[in-house]
Amino acid sequence: MYSNKYVKATNVNKAASIIADAEDGKFLAGGMTLIPTLKQRLASPDLIIDLSDCKLTGIEDEGASIRIGAMSRHVDVAESVLVQNAIPAIANLASQIGDRQVRNRGTIGGSLANNDPAACYPSALLGLGGTIHTQNRSILAEDFLTGMFETDLEEDEIIIGISFPKPDKAAYVKFPNPASRYAMVGVFVAKFSDGVRVAVTGAGEDGVFRASNIEAALDESFKANSIIDGLVSADNLMSDIHASAEYRAHLIGEMTRRAVIACG
C-alpha cells in the first residue's frame, strides 16, 4: 500500500472542504472496495477522508418512498423491519451482498458511488427509479449512473441518502459468481401501477442497464413465460473468464423469470 494520510470528518460540509484542499483525496465509507484497491496499489490517494462520523445513517418511511442514509451498512438494510415491510426486495438484495463480514462494513452509499458493474445495489436504484441525494442536489437514477465505475458525482460531492419509490411488487434475483459473490448476472424487477422496470447488473459493458425488451414483454403480461428465448441479445454484454456474453444473455432471461415468480 502506498502511504496516505487519514482523517475523520465530522460532517459532510467539512468532508467536502477537506477534499477540496487535498491533492488527491478519497472519501472512505465502509472501505470494502476502497481498502482492497489501495492494498493492490490500484489507487494512491494522498488523503483518506472517513465519513463514518458524518451521521449519515438512518432509514425513514417517506410515504410513497423510503429513504436510506448513505452510510447504512448492508446488514442494517437487510435487517431493517421498515425496509422488509416497505420494499422487501431491497432487504433481500442487501442480505446477499458479499459475505457477513462485508455486510457488517459495506454501505449502500459506498456501493452506489463506486457503481461497480457487478454490484447489486445499482440494479435496485435503476430498477426502482430511485433518487440520489447529495449535500448539493438530488439526482435521478438514470442521470446518476453514467457508466462502468462512473457516476454523475462531482469530486467533492457526497451521497447523503437514497430514496426508493415503493413498487406494487419487486424482486431481485442474482446468479452469484461462486468465488466473489458479485453478480455474474443480477436482475431487479419492479412492477409499478404505470409499468414494469427491469434493471440488469453484472452483465452490461457499460454497467447496469434497463432491459427494454423485457420491460415491454412484462408490461404486456407480467408472467415468467413472457420471457422467451432470444428476447435478450448478447450485444453489448460482457464476456470474460467467468461467462460469455451469450451465457450472460441466457442468465438474464432466467434470472428475470425467477424474479417475476418471486414477485408472486
Binding site: 487519514y6 475523520k8 472512505l28 472501505g31 470494502m32 481498502i35 482492497p36 483518506i48 472517513d50 463514518s52 446488514v75 457477513r100 463480514q101 462485508v102 457488517n104 462494513r105
Partner: peptide, 19 residues
C-alpha cells in the same frame, strides 16, 4: 483475520486501525 469490532465480525485486513 476475522475479529469482533463492537461485537460484530469484521475482516481486520480490510480495515484501518484508525477506523
Amino acid at each position: 483475520c476475522i475479529v469482533h469490532l463492537n461485537g460484530e465480525s469484521v475482516k481486520s485486513c480490510s480495515l484501518f486501525a484508525a477506523q
